[in-house]
């Protein structure tokens, strides 16, 4: 052991060096986010709760029942119930279910949607007590989940 190493050891230099880093943090701004008290902001691209968009003017759904989202999903959790209209020969949406409990938020479904009807929104606070409540139908998807805010 050299003299320098001995002096370092006796005067606890390595510990003092450590304190030189940690000490000043006492006076610095706190980095931690106070999440439930202060709502968290997520960026616009965030993949959260799914939403079926409606036409803002007519209030009608944008979904054309093309079934592309259901085919794009790796898990196959989307179910589009549809029927072909005998007169217009177009698909008509009869029902839409989305099992949000199994979704992994990969955004493939929304990317496949040709009309931007399906979108993963910025809402992420939709924990429920019963898994059945995460089977969302068309009405629930259009309305979006109810966010219950944290209160003391």
């Amino acid at each position: 052991m050299t003299l320098r190493q001995l002096l370092r050891k006796v005067f606890l230099i390595d510990f003092l060096e450590g304190f030189a880093i940690t000490g000043p943090y006492t006076f610095k701004k706190v980095y931690t986010e106070q999440y439930p008290k202060v709502p968290a902001k997520v960026p616009p691209r965030f993949h959260g709760a799914p939403r079926l968009n409606v036409d803002p003017e007519t209030g009608k759904t944008l979904c054309i029942a093309c079934d592309l989202c259901a085919q794009a999903c790796p898990i196959g959790l989307i179910e589009v119930q549809r029927e072909r209209n005998a007169e217009t020969k177009r698909w008509e949406l009869k029902g839409y279910t989305y099992n949000a409990a199994r979704c992994m938020f990969c955004n493939l479904c929304a990317e496949a949607c040709p009309t931007n009807a399906l979108e993963l929104s910025q809402t992420f606070e939709y924990a429920v007590y019963d898994m059945k409540e995460l089977y969302w139908d068309k009405a629930a998807l259009e309305k979006g989940p109810t966010v219950v805010r944290f209160t003391k």
């Binding site: 960026p43 691209r45 990969c106």
Partner: peptide, 19 residues
Amino acid sequence: REEILKVFEACFGARLTTH
């Protein structure tokens, strides 16, 4: 790491399993 995850969140929409 949090700063990096924020970048991922802004770019890809998720923090950990980013796709």
